[in-house]
Simulated assay, not measured.
Amino acid sequence: MIEAYFDGASAGNPGPSGAGVFINANGQVERFCIPLPEMSNHEAEFHAFIAALEICLEKGYKTVSFRTDSELVNRAIEKEFVKNKAYAPLFEKALSLTNQFDLFFLKWIPSRENKNADELARKAIQQAK
């Protein structure tokens, strides 16, 4: 099974932001740094998730376990509901993408287990500045 780790980060809240996606495709590692415009950290987390979903779909990965340290994203997808309406468009887009997978899993992990994606997100912030 493919494992995709993602993280969003902002330098300020809001501030220049970035998304990091780290994919382990059966031992083959892929890394993505995605610079984002100025936004909040929570928005960056949703953008990182959407990027991870889109990358996996583009590569034809249809059975994927996604990993995040964002409790907000994890809870929103798990409950299929987002409380803050400001995140609703991002949530809806992410939810629609999850339906395109044959098997989709999302698991919350502690930050220490998401270091690769975090480093990529921070690198993307530097690219965004």
Results as ranks from 00 to 15, higher is better:
S10W: 08
A19R: 05
A48Q: 05
Q28M: 13
L72R: 06
A4V: 08
A9T: 09
L90D: 07
I34R: 12
E43D: 04
E3N: 13
I55S: 00
Y5M: 05
I109F: 01
M39D: 09
S40I: 02
E80V: 02
K62R: 13
P16D: 11
T63Y: 01
G60T: 06
G27S: 06
K129R: 13
A51S: 10
P16C: 01
G8K: 06
I50P: 00
L72Y: 04
S17D: 04
A52R: 07
A51E: 12
A88Y: 15
I50Q: 00
E58Q: 11
A121K: 02
G12P: 09
N41E: 03
R122F: 03
A11L: 15
E80K: 15
L72T: 10
A88D: 11
I23R: 08
Q28E: 14
I23K: 05
E3C: 10
A128E: 06
G8L: 03
W108S: 08
G27H: 10
F101K: 01
G20R: 02
K79L: 14
L103P: 00
K93P: 00
L97T: 06
Y61F: 14
T68I: 03
E80A: 15
L97P: 03
F104D: 09
A51W: 03
F81H: 15
L106Q: 07
F105K: 14
K93D: 06
H47P: 00
N41K: 09
L97E: 13
E80S: 14
F91P: 10
V21C: 10
L53K: 03
A44H: 04
N24R: 14
F91S: 08
I2N: 10
S10I: 08
N116H: 11
R75L: 11
G27R: 11
V64W: 07
Q28V: 15
T68E: 10
P35F: 05
D7E: 13
A48V: 01
K59D: 03
A117V: 02
N74P: 02
F22L: 03
K123I: 00
F22Q: 05
T63R: 15
L97Q: 13
P16L: 08
G27T: 06
V29D: 04
F91N: 05
Y61H: 13
P35L: 09
D7H: 12
Q28N: 15
I109L: 06
R67L: 15
I77L: 15
N13R: 11
A76V: 12
L120E: 00
M39V: 10
N84T: 09
A128L: 11
Y61K: 01
A121V: 01
E58K: 14
K93Y: 04
E119V: 07
